[in-house]
Amino acid sequence: MTAPTPAAAQLWARPAPVIAPRPVHRLADVIDLRGPDAVAAQPALALDFRGADDGFGPSPTSSSDLPCPRAWGQQVSQALVEVLGAHRPVTQLVRWTTTDVYARLARGAQAVPSRHPGRGRRPVVRRVRVDDCRDGVAEVAAVVVVGERVRALAFRMVGRDGRWVIDQLTVG
C-alpha cells in the first residue's frame, strides 16, 4: 500500500455561493395599501355567481339518459349486501353513493369483522321492485337472503352527472 502524497491529502475549503432571489416588484411597493385610497386603488375581480349551476356541483340527469333502473338496482343491491356482509370492500361503492350514505356504509362495514372469501355463504338478492317516481328518481326495494335470514333493503337512486347515485338507504 502506498502512502498518499501530501498534495492529494490536502483538502480545500471553498465558501458556498450566496443564492438570493432576484428582487420582485410587489404591488405593495407601488400602492400604499394602508392609506384612505387603498380600496379605490385595488383592482376588482370580475366574478359573476348568478349562473353558479353551470359546472359547479352535481347536475341532475334525466331517466332517459341513464341505464335501466331495474337492472342497475339489481346489481347495486347485490353489491350493497355484500358490503354489509363484509364480502366486498366498501370502497367499491364510493362512486355510486352520496357522501352521507357512503359514511354510513363505511361505519357499518367496520362493525362487521372481515371474512375470508371462501367462508360463509354470500348474501343473495331474491327479488327487486323498482318504482320510477319522477324523472331522474327511482326507488328500489329488495328482498335479500343472508344466511338463514330474510332481510329487506330499500334505497332511492337519483340521476346525477350521467349515472345513478344512491342518496337514501334503509336496511331492515
Rank of each mutant, 00 (worst) to 15 (best):
L33G: 08
S59V: 12
R14P: 00
D48K: 01
D29H: 11
H25T: 12
L45R: 14
Q42C: 08
A38D: 00
R34G: 15
A38Y: 01
P23T: 06
R22L: 15
S59W: 04
Q42W: 06
R50V: 04
V30L: 13
Q42L: 15
R50T: 15
A20L: 07
A41L: 12
R26I: 00
P43H: 10
G55D: 07
R50A: 12
A9V: 09
A16D: 10
L27R: 13
A52D: 04
A41T: 03
D37R: 12
H25Y: 09
P21V: 02
A13K: 14
G51C: 02
R22A: 15
I31C: 04
A16Y: 07
F49K: 00
A41M: 11
H25D: 15
F56M: 11
P60D: 06
A46P: 04
W12C: 09
A8I: 08
A46K: 07
P23C: 01
S59Q: 15
A28T: 10
A16K: 11
A28F: 04
A40D: 06
L33D: 05
V18W: 02
I31L: 15
P36C: 00
V39R: 11
P43L: 13
G55V: 03
A28S: 15
R34E: 15
D32C: 04
D32A: 10
V24G: 06
L27C: 06
G57S: 03
R50W: 01
L11V: 11
L33F: 14
P23I: 03
I31P: 00
G35D: 15
G35I: 02
G51M: 01
A40I: 05
L47E: 10
P60N: 01
A13I: 13
F49Q: 03
P58L: 05
G55C: 08
V24A: 14
P60H: 00
A8V: 11
A46T: 08
P15I: 02
V18G: 02
L45N: 08
L45C: 05
A28Q: 11
A46D: 14
S59K: 13
G51E: 12
D54Q: 15
L47H: 02
A20H: 03
G57W: 06
L45P: 03
G55Q: 08
A52I: 12
F56S: 06
A44L: 15
P36Q: 09
R50H: 10
P15H: 07
W12Q: 14
A46I: 02
A38Q: 01
S59D: 04
A13W: 13
D32T: 04
V24F: 05
G35K: 06
V24Q: 12
S59M: 11
A52Y: 15
L45Q: 07
D53L: 12
D53Y: 07
V30F: 04
V24M: 10
P21I: 00
D32Y: 04
A38I: 01
F56E: 08
P15Q: 09
S59Y: 01
L47V: 14
R26T: 14
R22C: 08
V30Y: 09
P36T: 09
L47W: 07
G51H: 13
D37N: 13
D32G: 07
A9Q: 12
I19H: 07
Q10G: 01
Q10L: 13
A20M: 02
D29K: 00
